[in-house]
Design a protein around this nucleic acid. Structure first.
Lengths: 227, 227
DNA sequence: TGATATATCTCGAGT
DNA sequence: ACTCGAGGTATATCA
């Protein structure tokens, strides 16, 4: 029966794989999931375990009657997690069943979709040429024409950072080699744009636009919303 | 007493914060840590909770005697995680104590340090001008002079990808505006360099160098090693 | 399989 | 408090 196993134990841990890491002896939570994955938690930080092995992986347990001994967890790439258990304080297993999964709203794809259906956000008279306009180095988020008919490549990000400006720069360089499109200018659109990204964009003649996601969504047909 | 709390419960979850997310009812593991953080796990994926709230945050529990009701977790940014508990199947708390923490070896900082003390890796007669050489757009990992006295900016990465080449390119552009330094060429040093990064580097006249971390560490005083 | 882009990215160091 | 960079990033998509 697939189930989650919770072990509280005094243990030390050694990981040898993409790096080498060591955890001195202390009491920790060992979390073993149905897929065989193992993670080792201290009682701080919600998200990240101190150490872990992602699935697919297999565990060999060499322990005595009290649960003391070693767990050796290995994956296909021969990364190894060795847990030396000195004392087991708790050990329980619980059947959870299959999870129906998470429903999300407000990620970049939604922002891009909203902007595609509201190109007037960029300026009066703008029209969308194509969403995910394909190029040799990947798709441009939005290819538009402004009121004057000039081509504009739009890069959409939830949070605008320097990488996004670099990405748009590469697209612009490529698009401007196409005589049917050139000259192409760039617009960097995000809910929030970091100062450094703004500086780099301006240095490269790229226009920045901060977008109000909630306002944009508000204009949308409520029937199309996820919630 | 600070401790970790493990709850197995049938619950649904709503998160409203950086995005909006919803988890339909199912049996899950709720992990509450000493710092107040809460994470919700299904029994797949070692690492990632389905939903979570990072510390610092506070939880208000409105539950009946059987534990059914709602947990409302909020943080300072007014992000909100609402857990609606229908049935509690397990609830236990365990004292862990303070964790001594993780000791790592093999990260970028070590590689940079090793290269700084072994600039001859780049070529005979090289000398280090400065580690973390400051510029307006961030520090250059290593600034060196080669045997001929020419200035070289070195970008060190554990894994060399396209971003690293972009980063070095920005530095070179800036450094070459300084008449005291120019002309400055670039070296991209990493334990492993992706083909795509190699192509971009070569296109920009940047030299690539793959570094053998273990061999480099082997030349070092064994007493200085972490393990 | 490899490359690319996203992420409630997390986390830590430095300013 | 904020910014910036590294990460065993993880994860999804697409070639």
């Amino acid at each position: 029966v697939p189930c989650v196993r919770l072990v509280i134990a005094r243990c030390s841990v050694d990981y040898v794989g993409r790096l080498t890491a060591h955890l001195p002896s202390a009491t920790r939570l060992l979390l073993v999931k149905a897929d065989g994955s193992v993670s080792i938690h201290a009682d701080d930080r919600a998200y990240k375990p101190l150490n872990w092995m992602s699935p697919p992986c297999t565990t060999r347990e060499d322990v005595d009657d009290a649960g003391a001994g070693t767990w050796t967890v290995v994956n296909k790439a021969a990364e190894q997690l060795v847990i030396t258990i000195e004392e087991v304080l708790h050990d329980s297993s619980h059947e959870l069943g299959v999870d129906p999964g998470l429903v999300k709203d407000g990620v970049e794809a939604h922002l891009q979709h909203l902007l595609a259906t509201h190109v007037e956000t960029f300026g009066a008279g703008w029209r969308l040429v194509r969403r995910e306009y394909p190029t040799a180095i990947g798709p441009v988020d939005l290819l538009c024409r402004d009121a004057a008919g000039a081509t504009v490549a739009v890069e959409v990000k939830r949070r605008g950072e320097i990488d996004g400006v670099e990405q748009l720069t590469r697209y612009l360089e490529l698009l401007n080699r196409d005589p049917l499109l050139a000259p192409v200018r760039g617009v960097f659109a995000a809910q929030e744009i970091k100062a450094q990204a703004r500086v780099l964009a301006s240095d490269r003649g790229i226009e920045c636009l901060t977008v109000d996601y909630d306002a944009l969504r508000g204009h949308d047909d409520p029937g199309l919303r996820l919630f």
